[in-house]
Amino acid sequence: MIKAFFYIRMKQFIRTMKELGIVRMLFLLILFIFLVVAVFEYTSDSPHVYVTVLIYMAGIITIQLNRKDLAFLETRIHHYKRILIVEYMVLAIPLIAGLLYNHYYGMLILALVSVVLIPNIGKVPRVGIPNKLFLQWIPDDCFEWKAGIRKAFVWIVLIWTIGVATPFSLGTVPLAIVILGIIISGFYEYGEPLPMVLAFEKSNRRFLSHKITMHIKLFSVLSVPLICAFIAFHPDKWYIPVAAYLIFLSLHCYIILTKYAFYEPNTKSRASQTFGLIGILGVFIFLLLPVVWILAIYFYFKSKENLNFYLNDYY
């Protein structure tokens, strides 16, 4: 059964690569090399190595929490956790290699133990949020936010509270904006059903501008208190949280445009996920940021063209 499962995984991988096409595949390969180089670079000195391991493990935990196949694996395969460990081990190869190369054996053991333990993390129960308290402030148009906040409510509240409560520390507020930015970028990965696009009764251009404007407003409501708290304690370093906020704002706009550039009703487009990942990597590998901004312009026109098929009757 385990052998059959890995065979299916291999087939899935080949199918995904075929769907991406040769150009995107090459782009992804270059990006992967970039990522490996960045991991090797960041694991070479003492303060960065801890952050790198932390972010890498947070990434794998996010995958574990968002997997849709856990129930299937649990019922079909006896030792399904072994499969998860192997998969996560494969994902962690660049980190493991980086830590080995740079002789951080303590961190290596910590990373390996984490990879073995992560498959034991179960689904986080969805917290019942009092509608009148939080969600009523979010317009119904922003259903991505409503659904996203329901799914990640605990994390968002926890990180935001830590950020607001500890602005005296130089790192917490920018880090809180970065983590919140990454969580929020996941709100836009699923393509909504067609009636939900048509319900806006707007042209392609107005639809996109409405989506982006609403996002800017909501992300600003979340980030501005954090930025203000930071500036109150470090007025001379005001540009740090502002830069983090602006980078994520541009990244989110890029992700929204990517989603609608490849939009098909009721689907999670692999191409949009891949380009979304490139955007998130841009936050950590600054060289990629201009590429993300250029792609955002390209995707604006592509999403207008794609949406025109559905919204051509609206003005």
């Binding site: 119904d140 259903f143 409503k146 659904a147 799914k151």
Partner: peptide, 13 residues
Amino acid sequence: FYSGITGREYLNL
């Protein structure tokens, strides 16, 4: 339907 929203939120669109 979009996962994670209520029936009322869907209709309010």
